[in-house]
Write a protein that binds this DNA or RNA. Structure first.
Lengths: 209, 209
DNA sequence: GAGCTGCGGTACTAGACGGTACAGTACTCA
DNA sequence: TGAGTACTGTACCGTCTAGTACCGCAGCTC
């Protein structure tokens, strides 16, 4: 996809934005290429010039979304790793974690990828590893450092990071997934989930102080 | 759906079994009524005699699956609630919990319902509450009893039960959801997830002994 | 300004879909 | 045995779909 004129590149972006919206709303099978072209304000011919067929379009979109996610937890993880107030820092990390992952857009894409994971298994796996996997690895690194510094007691950082995620996200994530609406969980509820999850995590992995 | 001759009832069951299989494989939009009729070894006419249209067929199937789930944790929860060896009992409960929820059939239906939750929001919510919700409530009751008996320290049993579930299921559930294959997690891995989750839970919610 | 390229619009093909109609066959029950 | 019902098989309708062909216009390059 190198070597595109600026105009073509702009069209391509229009198409991808529109296609993502259409796929999110209707799923892979339910989405039609006519809808995509119409929403992109582009002719079908142009769509097929840039993307071989529907399947390639879908793959490009999901891969693109996965690539765009530059791990949003690097900065805060570094701060948390060097904190002197673990409790406060973990609560902050929890809050950031929950609001980031529970962002409506992220959840919509999550549902789409899960729903099509039988049709596109490799795509699902790649999305998961490049997206959430990196975030978990970052947090795991943070926990490892806190263990070194004697502020947490973490034998296996990856497991601890996954437990952290499970404590925080299991409830709201399932609620959104099964309710089909991104507003199924309010911001306040997210706050209480983050707080109770962080408390449980600190009890499980904190050092007796 | 009362008042069916035995023959009609048998046909109906054939259709529902076949339809579930077809929906699981192809999703709601991707499944065709011809496929369903063929797999059920039944004419399309018979399908439409029993079910008004595709949507009613889908709803009937998901509701039926939800109804069939009689909470599989009642018995073990009662045993755990009255145990004298909490650690051992929680580990057993964890093992049962993970193997039951991570059953391939359960996970397939979970994916289907999530994938169609935008199209059928009420169905998704009902499935979640009647299925997993009841299981969580049962486990929460068990934890409340263990708190009474001084063997756990549980302020909010429902939150504790959800934390239990999150610790155990977050990792394997996501793996299966995104891999699109039910064999993405081996039985041994399930065992280690159950064990490490149970340990974390006991540290977080156990009483200092 | 000629020529080329990219794009829009539309019409098209070939097939699949949900749902229905109908004629003929198997079963049930009196 | 006979009447009535349930079922099968196939053909069909209208609609939608992915993907292609073609024409005509706009904008860029030399």
């Amino acid at each position: 996809m190198t070597d595109l004129t600026p105009r073509a590149a702009a069209k391509r972006q229009q198409i991808m934005d529109a296609a993502l919206a259409v796929f999110l709303e209707n799923g892979y099978v339910g989405a039609s290429m006519d809808q995509v072209a119409a929403l992109a304000a582009v002719s079908k011919q142009t769509v097929y010039k840039q993307f071989k067929d529907k399947e390639h379009l879908f793959r490009s979109i999901i891969e693109d979304v996965g690539d765009r996610v530059d791990d949003p937890f690097v900065e805060i993880s570094e701060q948390v790793a060097e904190t002197d107030d673990v409790e406060r820092a973990i609560h902050e990390l929890a809050g950031r974690f929950v609001t980031t992952i529970m962002d409506p857009r992220v959840q919509q894409i999550r549902r789409l990828v899960i729903g099509e994971a039988v049709r596109f298994p490799a795509l699902g796996r790649a999305y998961w590893e490049r997206g959430f996997g990196r975030a978990i690895a970052t947090v795991a690194g943070c926990f490892a450092r806190l263990d070194e510094r004697g502020l947490l007691k973490v034998e296996d950082p990856m497991t601890a990071a996954n437990h952290f995620a499970g404590l925080l996200l299991w409830i709201p994530s399932n609620r959104v997934m099964f309710h089909g609406r991104t507003d199924a969980v309010s911001a306040e509820e997210l706050g209480t989930f983050a707080a109770s999850g962080a408390r449980a995590f600190l009890t499980a992995y904190g050092t007796p102080s």
